[in-house]
Computed example of a mutant assay.
Amino acid sequence: MNFDVAGPFEITRHGSNNIITKESAKILKEEIEEWEEGLSGACGCYVFGKRAGGGITPWYVGQACKTSLLGEALNPSNITNYNHVLGQKGAGVPVLFFIPARTPSGKLRKRPSGKLKSLSFLERWLISAAIEKNPDLINTKETRFLRDLHVKGVFNAQQGESTKSSSSLNKALGLR
């Protein structure tokens, strides 16, 4: 249940429409493999975001177990979704983070025959963290509960609803 973090990697855009294409994936693969050989083919999670104004806003979280990290992160459906975000949500540079699974000895984990429970848990946890930062996250899988859950002053909190108790709980949990 060991994971690492690589990135953020900028995704190049191409053509007159300045969009992410298959060419973007080819260029990104070279960068990823320079970071660490075998990383693009590993199993793990990924986070697509947009860098603008000095920060990165997460827009999509996914996992790759049956296919490679890069193959899943930049599959045709995801590319369409990312380009929609880039076209609708203003300026910014598209980026990807990769969170590859590691063996106990530190090697990149090969894709197992079935799903890793730790990978599914990590994906849900990353979605939770991302939706807290960006309520407009484009994930739909397992997000309804996260969008509807509300703990006053703690989770999906509204501005100004914090209480002394909620502030103490946030501090105890290291949330704020």
Rank of each mutant, 00 (worst) to 15 (best):
R144L: 13
V5L: 14
S118L: 09
K22P: 02
S162F: 03
L39M: 14
G90E: 12
K164E: 08
G49H: 00
V154A: 09
F9E: 00
I99S: 02
L122E: 01
V61P: 01
F121C: 14
V61D: 05
L74M: 15
A42N: 04
R144W: 05
L119R: 07
A25C: 07
S165E: 14
H84V: 06
P112D: 06
L173G: 04
R147V: 00
S68L: 09
G62K: 07
N2K: 12
L173T: 07
L108Y: 01
F155D: 01
V5K: 12
S105V: 10
N156V: 00
V47C: 11
T21M: 06
G106P: 05
S120F: 08
K141E: 10
G38Q: 13
P104I: 05
L126G: 02
L74C: 11
S162W: 03
V151P: 00
A157F: 01
L96V: 06
I79F: 07
I99C: 14
S68T: 01
E31L: 14
G92T: 03
K152S: 09
L28F: 07
F155A: 11
L108H: 08
L96R: 09
A73R: 07
E123D: 01
H84P: 01
V5D: 00
F97S: 01
S166A: 11
L175T: 03
Y82M: 15
N78T: 14
P135F: 10
V154K: 12
K117D: 11
C65W: 06
C43F: 04
K171Y: 04
G71Q: 12
L146R: 15
V85G: 03
S167D: 08
L74W: 05
